[in-house]
Amino acid sequence: MDKLILMIHPTTGLIGLLSAVWVFVEALNASPRNKARLYWGSVLTAVMMIATWIAGGYWYVNYYAVDKALILKGVYPLAHTIVMETKEHAFFITLILSFLLVVVTRFEDVSMNRGARLLVLTASALVVLSAFAIEGAGALIAMAARLSI
């Protein structure tokens, strides 16, 4: 059961990342015709990031202690002391940016307002880049735990 819970958060995180790519592309081609797609892409990004927060948080709070002990005794303790510590706190940046996307795409006409379009492009690009970094950090932590067994 813990392995299933462990797999949920990188999956929802990846769907959120792909949704943010979708939002970025819609904003690049913003017009009155894709306003709804831009908004619903942003909602999907935020919903997936909330799911990642809940699933990842549940696993981190209830199951991570075992892996943490293994990693700290293993060959790559930095996977916890630097990578995991940074990852668990940097995630909130991605989460907040995904919420911002929903607000801006809800209240602005991105096709008419250049500043709003730049804000959506920037926030979605930052969601993509930070989520990529977090997914990569997760892979490093998993590898460090496996090598410590």
Binding site: L97, L100, E108, N113, L118, A123, L126, A133
Partner: peptide, 20 residues
Amino acid sequence: GTMLAIVLVIATILSGVGLF
């Protein structure tokens, strides 16, 4: 929006690098 986008990028980079 342009000014807020620029500050958002700077804040995000500094905060992320700051954590690391």
